[in-house]
Amino acid sequence: MTYCVAMRLDAGLVFLSDSRTNAGVDQVGTFRKMSVFEVPGDRMMVMMTAGNLSISQSIRQLVSELRTEDGHSIWNAPNMYEAARLLGQAVRQVHERDAQSLSAFGIEFNVSIIFGGQIKGERCRLFQIYSAGNFIEAHDENTYFQIGEAKYGKPIIDRVVSPVTSLDDAAKCALISMDSTLRSNVSVGLPLDLLVYESDRLAVTHFVTIDERNAYFQMIRSTWGDQLKSVFEGLDKPVWNAAPETAGSVLHSANTSGKPLRVAPPSGAGAAVPVNAPLQTLAQQFHDGQQ
């Protein structure tokens, strides 16, 4: 499986991807899912993929070579929208070529893509491209995209990231999001690729491949877990059956209404156990059974 996340901020872009692929518990591999299309001084674009690896690699190869009838390619597209449209066209061409034969072997045409960057003369832009080649663009109301195992790392991003978030804070948040995913899903794994792009640089600003020896990521993993435990332990315990005038962390008060939905047992189902019946230990049960 995969987890990739990208953020579009006022200051630039942040991209983070894992590198684990697997086709079963005993077929785990490492393949990089982030690709960079860069012409320094003119454009810097990043593609991250999730889904079928062979489909993803075919799309990457095709889009790097694709040229439309009017001469446009990803290397000279006038804006990011046109570049995203070319990538969507590459997705559809791979589908037309391979989908039917894959289906004959019971394999679904499955690919998700995050594509973002900047072309000289316009601002940074970020897109999510689907298996049909259609796409949507990130805006201030939704500044990030995730693909793959997105659910574990989503809450921290929703709480922290906004357009005004700095690149360093966004990178830190992305790494926490990835750590949450790594802890909860074995199909996502190290090493990670982290790319940070500062607006108008038109070249990669910062890039690092992160493995289990990376000191900063190890600090994130240990410190974030400890801080979460500390915050959890600092929260008040719920108060039950509180008097109506009680203030504070009241979960249930004397005037709280509500009862569980109880399912009535069928007539004669099970014998009633006396409330004060003595409990038997397993040893006693075994002893009684031997007599």
Rank of each mutant, 00 (worst) to 15 (best):
T246E: 14
T246M: 11
T246C: 07
T246H: 07
T246Y: 09
A247D: 04
A247G: 01
A247K: 06
A247Q: 15
G248L: 14
G248D: 10
V250F: 12
V250M: 05
V250G: 02
L251F: 13
L251Q: 07
H252L: 14
S253N: 06
S253K: 11
A254I: 14
A254D: 15
A254K: 15
A254G: 04
A254C: 04
A254P: 01
N255M: 15
N255P: 02
N255G: 00
N255R: 07
T256G: 02
S257K: 07
S257W: 14
S257N: 06
S257M: 06
S257Y: 08
S257F: 15
G258L: 06
G258F: 10
G258V: 04
P260L: 01
P260V: 01
L261K: 08
L261S: 09
L261C: 03
R262H: 05
V263D: 02
V263Y: 09
V263M: 12
P265V: 02
P266W: 12
P266M: 15
S267C: 06
S267D: 12
G268Q: 14
A269L: 10
A269N: 10
G270V: 01
A271E: 09
A272Q: 02
V273M: 11
P274H: 00
P274C: 01
V275R: 01
N276C: 13
A277R: 08
A277C: 12
A277N: 00
P278I: 03
P278D: 03
L279R: 14
L279I: 12
L279Y: 07
L279A: 14
L279D: 09
Q280A: 05
Q280T: 08
Q280N: 05
Q280R: 06
Q280H: 05
Q280W: 02
T281I: 04
T281L: 06
L282V: 09
L282T: 14
A283G: 12
A283Y: 05
Q284R: 04
Q284W: 00
Q284D: 13
